[in-house]
Simulated scan of single mutants.
Amino acid sequence: MTTSSFDLIRNPFGRLTLTSADGQVFENVSPVRAFPIQAPDHGIAMVCADGQEVAWIDGLQDLPATVRALVEEELGGREFMPEIARIVDVTSYATPCTWSVITDRGETHFVLRGEEDIRRIGPDTLLVSDTHGIHFLIRNMFELDKHSKKILDRFL
C-alpha cells in the first residue's frame, strides 16, 4: 500500500487508526522508521500491534499535512534520541563513568558502562548508550569542539 492509498486518524483512545483505499480498517497502528538516523524522513512502515506492515510511506513530504502531523507526533512520542552537542566532563577515563553532556534537549548526565557502549554507525556518526538504555547520538564527531573530541578520543 503506498502513501496516498490510506487515511489516518486518532481514535477516542488516542491510538492511530489506518483506513486503506479499499476500506480495510487497522486499529492501533504505529509508524516505524526503516533508517532512523541516516534517512529519518524516508522509509516509514505503518505496522499493526502484531508487527504486520499495513502501509509504507516513501517520504513524509508525500503525505497530506494532517496525516503527516499525526505520523510525526506519534514518532516523536515513541522515539527519544538526544543529540550530543558537547561533552562537558567525565568523572573518569575508566568505565563505568558519568558523562556530563549538552544535548539538543538540554544538559544531562549519564553513566557509560563500557567502551563497547559507544558504537560507530557511520564514518563520523556515533551512538552512545547509557545504563538505562537511552541512546545518545553524535551526528558528526569531527564537528565537536576540541575539548569534546579530546574526551571522546580517550574512549574510542
Rank of each mutant, 00 (worst) to 15 (best):
S5P: 00
L8Y: 04
N11W: 07
R15P: 00
A21K: 14
D22G: 07
Q24W: 02
V25E: 13
N28V: 02
N28R: 11
V29T: 14
A39Y: 12
A39S: 11
H42S: 07
I44Y: 00
M46K: 07
G51S: 13
G51L: 05
Q52G: 03
A55W: 00
W56E: 01
W56A: 06
D58T: 09
D58P: 03
L60W: 00
Q61H: 12
D62F: 13
D62A: 12
L63I: 09
A65P: 15
R68Y: 05
A69V: 04
L70A: 04
E73L: 13
E74S: 14
L75I: 14
M81C: 08
P82Y: 08
I84F: 09
A85S: 09
R86I: 01
I87D: 12
C97K: 00
C97T: 15
T98Y: 04
W99I: 00
V101M: 12
I102T: 13
D104K: 02
R105S: 06
H109A: 12
R113Q: 12
E116D: 06
D117T: 04
R119E: 13
I121Q: 07
G122Y: 03
D124V: 15
T125H: 01
L127H: 02
V128A: 03
S129T: 15
D130M: 11
H132L: 12
H135E: 08
F136E: 00
I138L: 06
R139Y: 03
E143Y: 05
S148K: 10
S148E: 08
K149M: 13
